[in-house]
Each structure stands twice: as C-alpha cells, then as structure tokens.
Amino acid sequence: MLKFFAPWCGHCQKLALIWTELAHELKGMVNVAEVNCDVHENLCRNVGIEGYPTGIFYLNGRKVDYAGRKALDAMSTFARKAFAPGFTKVDAETFNKKLNLDEVVFLLLHTGSDQRVLDSVSAASQVLLGESPIYASTSRALYSQYGLPSPSTSAVPVLIAIKSHASKNHAAKLELDGLATGHGSGEELEKWLLRNRFPVVSKLGMNSFYNVMKSRFRRLGHEEESQRIRSARLCFVWMDGRKWGKWLKNMYGIEDVSKFKMDGVVVVDHQSPSYYDTDLNGRPLTLDKDNIFYALRAIYAGRGTPKHSENLLERIARIMNKKELAIEEYVKTHIKTTIFGVIMFFVLTFYALKYVVNEDRSMDLF
C-alpha cells in the first residue's frame, strides 16, 4: 500500500501516525510505504495523483485506488481481505452457515479433478480485493440446492453469484468449461466477477461511491425487466437523505428528505455526468417498479431528456481537462511522432514567414 502525501497537507499530517501504526500491524503481510509528492513530483504526476493524501493499493501489478475511511481498522481490514486466499473450500453445511455473513458471495461448484479451474478462479478473485468471498465445493447437495444438474465426473464446473443470502436462487451463473479445457479467458472471468460483485441494492456512501460510480461492468436490477433493456448496464443504490441531503440537492435537485418527508429517484449516468428525474410525461420518478422501468426503457431508446449535474463552466473545465490528458497521453506513447510533428511545424512556419517577408520586399520594389 502506498500513501501519496505533501508535508504541508493538514489531512496528511493527521494520517501520518495512523499510517505508521498500519505498517507495524501489517508487517510481514503487506508492504506499506509512502511517497512525498513535493520531492517526487514527476512520479506523483505520472501516477495521476490529484489530491492529498491518496492511498493506492498494488496487488500483483494491479492498481486500485483506496476510497475507504482513512482509519486504522478500515485500512487494515481492506488489506487483510485483499490478501486473503482466492477461495475457501467448504461443504454444504459450512457454506449455509457462511451464507448469511455477506450480501454477495460466489460459489464454485466442481468435481474436484479440475485444478486448472481452481487456479484460474483463485487468480481472477484478486479483482474483488476480498470484497465478496468465493467458496468452492464439490457437494452434490449444493448443486441440488441451487437447481443445478447433478454433477458427474465429466461435469462442467460452474460459478454462481448469490445475493441477499438467497438459499435456493442464484443471481448469475457462469459455466467454466473453457477454463477446464485451457481455452477460456481469465479476463472474461474477472469481468464477470466485477459485474456481479455488488448487492441487489447497494448503500451509496463514502466507502462505496468510487466503486459504484466508476464501475463499467454493472448489470443489476429486476431480472425479467432487464431482459427487455438489452443494453442496460445499471445498478440500484440508495443514499441516506438526512446525511447526504445537501449533496443530493446540489447534484440532482432532490430536496432534503428529512425536511420534506419525500423520496427522490434519479437515473444517473455518472460518466457524462448527467441524470434523469422525470418520465416521458414530465412527472417525477417514484419508488414504483413500473414507473422506473418505463422510464428506463425510454432512456435507453433515446427518448429521455437528460439534465446536467454540472454547470456550464464545470463542463467546459472537465472537457478541457480530458483533452489535456489525452494530448499528454498521446505525447507519452508517440514520442517520435510528436518530435517529428514539432520539427515540421517549425520548419513550415519558418518557410511561411520567409515567403511572407520576400513578398513584402517584392511589393516594396514596386
């Protein structure tokens, strides 16, 4: 774990002692270090540090921004979960006891003879950083419990996602026959895990905001209705209006629920960033399944009218910043082309100026 800080930053100074305690607590398990961005400006710029302090977790070359509480217990728990084993072997009785401990769990059902699959799942599990546990079992009772065909020695291993402590139904299923034969993609398995790692309904707060809003693989919602919205990549979340009332009002125009005794519903595209808070008839969205999915169908058909959660100046600044980052990235990856382009620019400018000067002299002669 790396902490990027600046000595003059007040929050960094408060975190200094906690970071030292974290290093002692995780000694021998996780390497904990820090980078002074006043001294190593180029390094911090290349990593993309935009504020202080920033915590980044590196696991086998994978970079993950730490968005949780900057408290000793929270950071220690995060690190321990991230370095936990890829999966835990269980029998049916043990699994059902653990089922109530987490909102989302993954269950790998296999015959016991497919080590290649076990290794692939263990490697892919790193993308979860311990957020949702993976259990592995050869129990025939669990196959039956979740309505899967009884296994045989040649059965295809299957990975299922179970949400809201469901003891009979699974939210998603992935057959791993490709991995078993050596033709599957570990990247596809990682994407599947990321798509299904959140609860059916998540609480959106400081710890989960970054993961939810930045996720590109979410596909959650009412299963029957989701089939009608083929291209939908969405999730359902809720926020405490009493705690986040001011932010909700500034971003989406939702009045403080603690004051006005009302619930607000918006469909958010955080990548834009824009949002929808009315149906096609201009009526506010409500906590009603038919109302929400009617609005979603209209939005994905391009018939909704979005509103911006940024003002004009903020939008211009964001677009300019994206352009600047794109140019910077192009220069880094195409150094020779950039140098050639700069040289050609100056050469052409030189000859253009020379031509203009010669033309002026010719005019003076007349």
Rank of each mutant, 00 (worst) to 15 (best):
K243L: 07
A298E: 04
G241Y: 06
F260C: 11
F366S: 07
D360E: 09
E324M: 11
K246M: 14
R303K: 04
R318P: 05
T286C: 03
Y294H: 07
G245Y: 09
T338Y: 03
T337I: 09
I343N: 02
A301R: 08
R303D: 00
V268T: 09
F260E: 10
S309M: 15
I292L: 08
S274Y: 03
S362E: 13
L365N: 11
Y351W: 14
I319V: 15
G304P: 01
I335R: 08
G264S: 07
E324Q: 05
I319G: 13
G264W: 12
M320C: 11
H308C: 05
N291W: 01
A326E: 07
I343H: 02
H334W: 03
F340P: 00
K246H: 13
D277V: 02
E255V: 10
I299N: 00
M344E: 07
G282A: 11
K259G: 08
V268N: 02
V268C: 04
I316G: 04
V257W: 14
L353E: 08
L325V: 03
V347W: 08
C235F: 01
R297Y: 01
H334K: 06
V237H: 03
Q271G: 01
K322L: 12
V357M: 13
F346M: 03
F345M: 01
P273E: 06
L234Y: 12
S272L: 01
Y294V: 07
R361Y: 13
A301M: 12
K289P: 15
L353M: 14
V268R: 00
T333F: 02
Q271A: 11
L365V: 12
F236L: 06
T337D: 12
D279Y: 00
R242I: 13
H270Q: 02
A317K: 14
D277C: 11
V265A: 06
L325I: 03
N291M: 01
M344I: 11
A298S: 15
K249Q: 15
I327A: 05
T349I: 07
K323L: 08
L313M: 13
G282I: 07
L296P: 04
F345H: 00
Y275F: 13
I343E: 02
V342F: 03
L365R: 09
L280F: 00
V257G: 04
V356P: 07
F345T: 01
E329A: 05
A301D: 11
N311D: 15
K336R: 10
E255R: 15
L234D: 14
F346E: 04
I316P: 05
F345Q: 00
L312D: 13
E328C: 09
L313R: 11
T338H: 03
H334R: 07
T349C: 13
I335M: 09
L353P: 11
H308I: 04
K246I: 10
M262R: 14
Y351T: 10
M320Y: 10
K354R: 05
Y294M: 14
V357H: 11
L248T: 13
K323V: 11
D288R: 05
I327R: 10
E255K: 14
A352W: 08
D360T: 15
I292Q: 07
I254G: 10
D269Q: 01
W247V: 06
F350A: 03
G341F: 02
D288L: 09
E255G: 11
Y300H: 03
